[in-house]
């Protein structure tokens, strides 16, 4: 087996190592594939579907699909842009994403993705779901109104913290994050130093006392779109 794989993304030749996913190879090559649930240090969850690319004519998620020699990947196409906008719109109407008072605003990956995709307002009707806020933990609060079910906290707590504080319960549109207790987050062994406390892409898992420290204009995505760090590698 050769120790290098060559394939193309939107016609650009990309070199990769065997066993890498399209996402990993693209990141190294400075090509940004939009994503929400993916975080390099965690097992790919493949749930948001924003990183859907067309591989040899078939849709696949870049975060889970291994590279193969000669693979032809389409990423930045008008069709995929439309699908990605639709997915981000879905996530916005599914929850209660009221950015103006959200602690993560400006540093939120969902919001930043919407900015990057040029979304001014979602095209779908809002669901206005009734979701709880859990502030029982002394250092962390859990705001399910903003959860996008990316699974990062579930994987981080289980695989990195070795705790299993979070899990998914329910199914279909009622699927949600639950904590490992018959009561609340405050009754679990979650610690603010846990990896799971720092992986949430949105304002669902928040560390108390850290909000609004960075002034407007200097936050992560105020000036440069999400993904710029990857694109700057090129």
């Amino acid at each position: 087996m050769s120790d290098q794989i060559t394939f193309t993304i939107d016609g650009v030749e990309v070199k990769a190592k065997p066993g890498q996913t399209i996402m990993q190879a693209a990141d190294e090559a400075g090509i940004y594939i939009p994503r929400l649930c993916y975080l390099p240090e965690l097992t790919a969850h493949g749930s948001c579907r924003v990183c859907t690319v067309i591989v040899n004519g078939k849709p696949q998620t870049a975060c889970t699909q291994p590279v193969a020699e000669g693979m032809i990947v389409e990423n930045d196409t008008p069709e995929l842009l439309e699908h990605r906008r639709n997915l981000v719109d879905m996530l916005f109407v599914e929850g209660n994403h009221l950015c103006m008072f959200c602690e993560r605003s400006g540093n939120c990956e969902l919001q930043a993705m919407a900015y990057r995709l040029g979304i001014l307002a979602p095209k779908y009707p809002y669901f206005y779901p009734d979701k709880p806020l859990d502030s029982t933990h002394k250092d962390i609060f859990l705001e399910l109104n903003r959860c996008i079910l990316c699974g990062r906290c579930v994987n981080a707590s289980a695989d990195i913290d070795g705790k299993g504080v979070f899990g998914f319960v329910g199914r279909s549109i009622d699927k949600k994050i639950a904590v490992n207790s018959d009561k609340n987050l405050g009754d679990t062994n979650m610690a603010v130093t846990d990896k799971a406390a720092s992986v949430c892409p949105v304002g669902s898992i928040n560390k108390k006392g850290t909000a609004f420290k960075i002034p407007y204009g200097q936050r992560l995505y105020d000036q440069k779109p999400i993904g710029s760090d990857i694109e700057n590698k090129k």
């Binding site: 493949g46 749930s47 948001c48 579907r49 924003v50 639709n86 997915l87 879905m90 996530l91 109407v93 599914e94 779908y124 009707p125 669901f127 996008i148 079910l149 998914f168 329910g170 199914r171 279909s172 549109i173 009622d174 699927k175």
Partner: peptide, 15 residues
């Protein structure tokens, strides 16, 4: 019957 794992099936079908 959607398991709710991925966005399009979970939310899109409701829409």
């Amino acid at each position: 019957e959607s398991c709710g794992y991925c966005t399009p099936c979970r939310v899109g079908n409701v829409l």
